[in-house]
Design a protein around this nucleic acid. Structure first.
Lengths: 122, 122
DNA sequence: GCCTTATTCAACCAGTGGGTTGACAATGAT
DNA sequence: ATCATTGTCAACCCACTGGTTGAATAAGGC
């Protein structure tokens, strides 16, 4: 359990940084080396290297070796796991709201107070 | 622009904490007060209050007032914005992989080296 | 072997984050 | 008015993070 938790911790934390989100956005288009990734930013090359490491530790990217280069590759599966988590609760919440809306609509219509309502809430 | 960025920063950072993800999971089922939310955890009441504030600043929850209580309500829209962001790039990446897979499959089939291939990569 | 390219590691600094405890504020009940 | 309930604010501690610079490693080119 701690395993999955840690992974989600790291994944969400990784995407909490705008630079790293930008890296992900660019890696969605094409794999790239750290050097290529670092080029557009003001910050030092090493800083970007660190950012990439954070993404890697979060499982969001993987790396292979090609001579001196270590091309960075986006891991779509990790992104999928994140949406899985979010969507589960979003759907739960929305389902609940819809039910509530329906309830309120029925009550407001004036033909309310039917005893069919048994959504215990306390 | 900084606006949306900040919001995503905060939202992802908020969900990077396991306690806060648990809060979200519970709020998906039902609204709750800070007191109710704090009850199951070992940590102090104030710590949970802080966590809720982080979720609120991230736009993930909203709060109303009911006498002394300030019930916390999950904001499904904020969750949706997060999935929007993630899914955009996941889809881009996956589309690219599919294209690449198809390319490799064609090449491997032996009827390869058709000049239709012009995915310049260098 | 020596030089270049690409990348990481190590040490450091300032800022932030999660936790604590203790005091304060807001609202309702008596 | 006083008390109880519910929650926030403030100050503090320690760990972690994002950034820096400088040195080290890894792999190829000559």
């Amino acid at each position: 359990m701690g395993d999955t938790t840690d992974q989600l911790d790291r994944a969400f934390a990784a995407l909490a940084d705008p630079t790293r989100r930008d890296l992900v956005a660019r890696l969605a288009i094409a794999d790239a080396t750290v050097g290529e990734l670092a080029e557009p930013y003001e910050m030092s090359f090493q800083a970007v290297s660190k950012h990439v490491k954070v993404l890697e530790d979060a499982g969001l990217v993987t790396r292979s070796r090609d001579a001196q280069r270590r091309p960075v590759h986006l891991n779509a599966e990790a992104l999928d796991q994140m949406t899985q988590w979010i969507e589960r609760y979003r759907r739960e919440a929305e389902a609940r709201f819809s039910r509530l809306d329906a309830l309120l609509a029925r009550t407001a219509e004036g033909d309310g107070n039917r005893p069919t309502i048994k959504e215990k809430e306390s």
